[in-house]
Design a protein around this nucleic acid. Structure first.
Lengths: 128, 128
DNA sequence: GTATTGTTTCCAGTGGCTGGAAGGTAATCA
DNA sequence: TGATTACCTTCCAGCCACTGGAAACAATAC
């Protein structure tokens, strides 16, 4: 498969597939005579795996690690679970942070009448 | 005030204050003979305002707009409220997205025994 | 007079792509 | 066969909001 074909199958932009090749995350299985990247089914699986992991918010470096575990037939599930739990904890932290922001900003917004008058509790709130 | 003094008072890194000056977000009121940036109370207020707005997740460009409204004595509160509500809506979207991620990843993690065995539903789940 | 601290500018890097230019290759159509 | 189009290559630059570091100049403390 050429890069356009596999990009479509993996549902990733061509530029991204090329980028993953550049950083050695998912390398093509070879090159054609003209220098075109050639991909096989293995790489398609990996790219789909990476797309999925990225969509869960794993960083590219974490994807690299997960890919290593994904490929290692002898690995235990312990390491993977540890990473997943870590990620879940990060998501929870972020959600709590967003909740605080949401509440504070909502409080400010609800105290602002939002009309033609100049008085604005939001700006006052932000300046303190 | 020199940059170190105002950075401390505004609770911002010196580098950030300098960066805000570079992009014209909060410019120093002048320069000393030696070329040192000089700041006054006005700039301190603006820097604190920006720090606060940034901590609420407003982008630097939005901060620029908010600063404009903050400085404009004739502005209505409508524009500010619109921006705040927009930001609240973005926060809500992000939270919903994180909630989905959290639930899906939790489901995967709970189905993984996380021991020395090789079978791992998380990896299987990510590869689909 | 010297040691330390503070400030300046400039350059480069972060993460994870994305856009675009300039040029070579392959496939399709007349 | 030639022309057009579609696809591919590399390389460079930009996004956001800083942050780190180097080299040099300025101010302050002892």
């Amino acid at each position: 498969m050429n890069i356009g074909t596999i990009a479509k199958k993996a549902d990733l932009p061509i530029k991204t597939v090329r980028y993953y090749a550049d950083i050695g995350l998912v390398s093509p299985s070879g090159r054609s005579d003209a220098g075109y990247r050639i991909y096989g089914e293995m790489e398609l699986n990996k790219l789909r795996f990476v797309r999925s992991a990225r969509s869960f918010g794993f960083t590219v470096e974490e994807c690299r690690e997960l890919l290593g575990l994904y490929e290692d037939r002898d690995r235990s599930s312990r390491d993977v679970k540890r990473m997943a739990l870590q990620r879940i904890s990060e998501i929870e932290d972020k959600m709590a942070e967003l909740q605080t922001l949401h509440d504070e900003l909502s409080r400010l917004a609800s105290s602002c009448h939002g009309d033609d008058r100049a008085d604005c509790p939001i700006l006052t709130g932000l300046s303190r």
